[in-house]
Design a protein around this nucleic acid. Structure first.
Lengths: 152, 152
DNA sequence: TCCATACAGTTGAAAGTTCAACCATGTAGG
DNA sequence: CCTACATGGTTGAACTTTCAACTGTATGGA
């Protein structure tokens, strides 16, 4: 079957989306690297832990919510542990399991990094869009997530 | 000044956007890695070269249009050259310069990979959105690009 | 002409991610 | 009970990206 290439309008949307992703996440990574000495992925791990009861989560659950592979998370938590921001503890109910817990030091680092990061996100994305556009963005993104999750 | 945290609606949009990016680009990278044995970044390099007169471009210009650092591009082109998909040639008018040229083999690889990739992009993004949503996405993405480009 | 500086591009090391292989523990079926 | 399989998590190697340092070439004044 013949390939259905993208129309001009489709190309415009797709390339703009590609470009916005690249420049935005490059910029966010640089901001976090500069101000908090960590990549965005690690920041998200700390955020998720901080939002959980006891600031503790099973490794596999943490991998799921941060959308990362077990392997990636394992390596990442190893680095975070070296810095003293997270500790790993055996799980009481499943001897295979490990819990990752955010330490006080890790929480302090996150608390110090968060305001600057939120300001950056506002400056680059949120404040430049209308409430309608934010709503549109949410719907579009949720549609994409649903498609990717179903088809693969 | 007090941090202006994100409202619920803002959080929804922001997190959905983060999630869609991660799952989408993970999926695209896996598709290209599986079907064409290259990451999305390399695919874009080949695409840009293929669209240029003579399938040739200065390294620095190629870095600009692919939104990558000189260093990244240099490493990437080195890998592509090892595979015989690209060659580097001295620039006639500027002895500092290098031209990257897409080889016939590289063009053939791209031609083989493109239909599957476009189908994947359609399946995950384009076909799931209405024309209005594509237009909205383009506008939103262009706004983000403008913001990031100006503020940093 | 000479100098300082900017530009083009590469390099190697450090950091992050992926992939496949692996160990250990849990669980379901015969 | 015991076997087979699934789950939870880690590891090391290969690969990509980043960062800073570096080479070589162009350019704009004094």
């Amino acid at each position: 079957m013949a390939t259905r290439w993208l129309s001009a309008a489709e190309q415009r949307a797709w390339r703009a989306y590609l470009e916005s992703n690249k420049v935005l996440f490059d910029a966010l990574d640089r901001q976090l690297q500069r101000d908090a000495d960590m990549p965005h992925t690690y920041y998200e791990i700390l955020v998720r832990l901080s939002e959980t009861e006891g600031r503790t989560m099973r490794m596999s659950e943490l991998a799921t919510v941060t959308l990362s592979s077990r392997s990636r998370l394992s390596h990442a938590v190893a680095r975070l542990e070296e810095r003293g921001w997270v500790v790993r503890e055996d799980c009481a109910t499943d001897r295979r399991g490990q819990n990752a817990r955010l330490t006080e030091a890790g929480f302090a680092v996150l608390a110090a990094a968060a305001p600057g990061h939120v300001e950056t996100v506002r400056g680059y994305v949120i404040d430049g869009l209308t409430p309608e556009q934010l709503e549109q963005l949410a719907e579009i993104a949720e549609t994409i997530v649903a498609k990717v999750s179903n088809e693969s």
